[in-house]
């Protein structure tokens, strides 16, 4: 591996170390109780991960996130593709989505909590809403951009309209769809934590805020690191899968935008 390639590979790690170093120095300089040093925060991580209660909470968070994300993707991709290929479907859903899109989904939580309680259903639903819109939007754009003549070529081979949607529009729009899913994944994490901050009953967000209430600042910062690491790992795993699925569309060289 050439030195330049090696540097590209370790750059994200260096960025992490750099951030932690700045944090450490800033914390030592400020000497504030509510701002523990990076080493104190890192030392608190094993305590959290070793605690059964915390682990159950974090796993419950991940389960809701997976469910909300999965259901959102399964519904949003077909809907977005249909909107992209059918003027009628687009005309029906577009105004609705235009209204919903800019509304922060967490702002809907009080109402949803009122109707559905503070349990799993409410939180999963908020994650679902957060993930749906970018996935629908990118699927829609991807389907709209599919070359007409590619579809004609398929039609001449005898593909029915439904087959063309699944076997031409879906793969042709896949790079764009997966871009939407990647955004959706990060949004799932954000809405997951947000929902747990509002409906505090269980989950990673709840641990974080309980620690804040009790003044355990090293735990607060340790949780931020854990949640951040979760986001980074999920994104890196997803990016690997994505790159594998759309290898055919990637340019030969690419900007390093992830940890994968």
């Amino acid at each position: 591996m050439s030195p330049a390639a090696l540097l590209r590979r370790v750059a994200p790690v260096l960025a992490c170390i750099g951030l932690l170093a700045v944090w450490q120095v800033a914390s030592l300089a400020l000497k504030n109780d509510s701002f523990p040093t990076a080493t104190e925060a890192i030392r608190a991580i094993p305590d959290i991960l070793g605690d059964k209660e915390s682990l159950i909470n974090i796993l419950a968070s991940l389960r809701r996130m997976a469910l909300g994300f999965g259901v959102a993707v399964l519904i949003s991709i077909p809907l977005g593709l249909l909107m992209g290929r059918s003027r009628g479907v687009a005309a029906f859903f577009n105004p609705l989505l235009m209204v919903i899109y800019p509304v922060p989904k967490a702002a809907l939580m009080p109402i949803i909590m009122l109707w559905l309680g503070v349990g799993d259903v409410t939180k999963t639903l908020v994650i679902f809403l957060g993930v749906s819109l970018p996935v629908i939007y990118h699927s829609f754009e991807g389907a709209k951009a599919v070359e007409e003549k590619m579809l004609w070529s398929g039609a001449a081979m005898g593909l029915s309209p439904a087959q063309r949607l699944v076997r031409i529009v879906l793969p042709a729009a896949l790079p764009e769809i997966l871009t939407g899913c990647r955004t959706g994944l990060v949004l799932a994490l954000i809405t997951m934590i947000t929902s747990e901050m509002i409906a505090r009953q269980s989950g990673a967000g709840n641990i974080l805020f309980n620690a804040l209430d009790m003044g355990q600042y090293d735990t607060v910062f340790a949780m931020i690191i854990i949640v951040g690491a979760m986001g980074i790992s999920l994104d890196a795993i997803f990016e690997r899968v994505r790159a594998r699925l759309v290898r055919w569309s990637e340019p030969q060289f690419d900007m390093p935008l992830s940890f994968s």
């Binding site: 003549k149 590619m150 004609w152 001449a156 081979m157 042709a172």
Partner: peptide, 30 residues
């Protein structure tokens, strides 16, 4: 459209997610 009339377009309109073989075999498999 129907398989009795086969188009070839200026824009090629190949399926980019398929290899050369994958593109050519698509019609017969269909």
């Amino acid at each position: 459209p129907g398989p009795d009339r086969g188009p070839v377009f200026q824009e090629f309109a190949l399926f980019p997610w398929k290899t050369v073989l994958g593109n050519v075999i698509y019609g017969p498999r269909q």
